[in-house]
Nucleic acid binder design. Structure first.
Lengths: 191, 191
DNA sequence: GTCTATACACCGATAGAC
DNA sequence: GTCTATCGGTGTATAGAC
């Protein structure tokens, strides 16, 4: 059984996610991973022959995280406002530690140098996330819980983009503006 | 007189700005600039001995752009809503052409690998921009033109972060969501 | 100012022993 | 699965001729 291989692959993926969120895809190297794990670059290439392969695996890990989180949120018996807050807290938790941002924001920033394989995956992840939040807002508005003008997809864009932007902004300027801005963001949805 | 040197330096700076907005600071090289200008890498090093020097110059160019734009907006005899729209249009214009984003967003994404000299400049630019928008919103609200809850600085953060995020998002998914999201953003400010 | 030539570090990637 | 060794390419940067 290849549980050990799976563990190693998992280790590399987790470390890759961390580096993606801190340095960006083009700015971390196999060397970074190998020294952190105490093995050589060649060993990393055994598990992920090309960096592109690791990149695709990172997209898959993000997708797994999305699916797990979204399923959990949908199943819980709470208001849509609480569901939205759950999503926000989960993303903040995912970027916890120091100087991490949303992995999708990171990939977006490097899109010009990204391997071609990764673009469709990135697009699908973005759409999936935005669609989920739009559905949350639509449900909340239909039940009189939320009140905002315009289409839900545009309001969802404001929520998601502000959240991820605030995370990125906090990395430069500290977290003083993070929580109050997110509170403000949610207060804009209340009737 | 060194007008020719100044022109060359200006050319390099403009090209550097373009590359910053498309590829990011760590993902463009002196080679990119030299081939585009038809000179050698060594010539670029004559004008900007270290890439860090070019990076600082890029921050200065962004600052010049900010100061010029903000002065122009403040001097015009228009409503605060029109002033805000002027700022939004100016940033969209600055990222016009293909696959460009706000240069500050780009620098933020690369902050982990950025030369130490550039960080204070980046912080000052961010604060200057956010402060300007916050002042616009404060004036508009004092005059009954805008209506929104909470502090102006937090609302300004929502405006700026959504705008820049939408620009980045458009590069991946096309511009279909850009204009309606910005419309929605401004409609949230109306009483 | 711009050139040729080069130094040095790091990158992704591969071959082959163990 | 991990290692040593190495390759080719590219990055920033410098020396010195013109």
């Amino acid at each position: 059984m290849q549980t050990r291989a799976k563990d190693r692959k998992w280790q590399i993926t987790q470390l890759g996610l961390d580096l993606l969120q801190t340095r960006g895809y083009e700015n971390f190297s196999y060397q970074d991973i190998s020294t952190a794990l105490g093995i050589t670059k060649a060993s990393i290439h055994y598990h992920f022959p090309k960096k592109e392969d690791l990149g695709v695996a990172l997209c898959g890990a993000i997708q797994d995280w999305h699916e797990s989180l979204f399923r959990k949120i949908q199943q819980e018996n709470t208001s849509n406002a609480e569901k939205l807050n759950h999503y926000i807290r989960a993303l903040l938790e995912y970027a916890k530690g120091k100087n991490k941002i949303c992995p999708l924001s990171s990939l977006q920033a490097d899109v010009a140098s990204l391997p071609a394989n990764m673009l469709p995956a990135l697009q699908a992840l973005d759409r999936h996330e935005l669609g989920f939040i739009a559905q949350l807002l639509a449900n909340g508005r239909a039940q009189g819980e939320f009140s905002f003008p315009g289409e839900t997809s545009h309001q969802a864009a404001i929520v998601v983009l502000t959240l991820k932007g605030a995370l990125q902004y906090s990395r430069i300027h500290g977290s003083a503006l993070l929580e109050p801005t997110l509170d403000q963001l949610q207060s804009l949805l209340i009737a």
